[in-house]
Amino acid sequence: MTIPQSPPVKGEHPLENLADKKIKARRWYHDKLLVTGAIIVGIALFLAAFGEAIAPYDPTVPVGPPSVPPSTTYWFGTDTSGLDVFSRVISAPRIDVTLAVSAAVLSGILGTFIGLMAGFYRGVFSGFIMRVSDVLQAFPVFILAMVLVALSGRNLTNLIFALTFLYTPIFIRLTRAEVLTQRERAYVEAARAAGNSDLKIAIKHVLPNSLTPSLIQLSVTVGFGILLTAGLSFVGAGVRPPNPEWGLMIANSAPQLVLGEWWTSLFPGIAVSLTVVGFAALSNAIERRVATS
């Protein structure tokens, strides 16, 4: 489940500045959170690219007897169809991570741009955009995602589009809110006084200074995307079997779990859980560093 981001509390504690100065002084590799996040994200990205290639078995064909517990031959055991769980777990980022990263990047770019325009040029357009994204945000996310994917066809492109559509409003809101603060700052007025046109001010000055929230959000959104993909596949509205995908693996093994066959769902679950934590940690660490510089 991806719980909506809590609205940040305005007016930070005055002492956080003191603490921040100290954090800044530390080298990045002393920041446990950052290192943990970076390692997990690094592994996830690596597996997305090479997971299938380094897997000991073909993840989509039965390679042994069904329901073998973890052993030296099958590290994570095999599932009811005799597929190797380890090979499937490390091949899955190919779908889960790629999909989530693409959707996060697409919605990040789109949302940041729309948010910039909506924040900088206030008026009818801005009002309209905000109402639309209000409506989208009031939607039950998971149901909307199911509708979008199930009704447009369960393939990777449609999943990416659906996720992008769902996550763009987050970036619109974040960027617009930041733009609204930035445009009140004196450097914007100074840029105008220097002779910049509105568009130049928006692109050259306001945009680079309004990117931070989106960058922080980006990493979290990848985590969200992985969860949503897994969830959709879990209820049968996402990736089609026998593709290696974490949610699908958990769904397929759910009936076996109550019979004691724990390995088929434990490992993909840990993979999802850890990956999401990794992306969240990275985003958290970046946020803390940005706040101090």
């Binding site: 974490w246 949610g247 109550v258 769902s265 679950g269």
Partner: peptide
């Protein structure tokens, strides 16, 4: 960090395995 975004369906299954299958202090789902 951990619980803000998690595969709750998997946690549910894990709890079922633990509390129902292993400990027997929860009903079958």
């Amino acid at each position: 960090l951990f619980a803000g975004a998690q595969p709750e369906f998997w946690w549910g299954l894990l709890f079922i395995f633990f509390f129902y299958y292993t400990l027997g202090i929860a009903p079958a789902p």
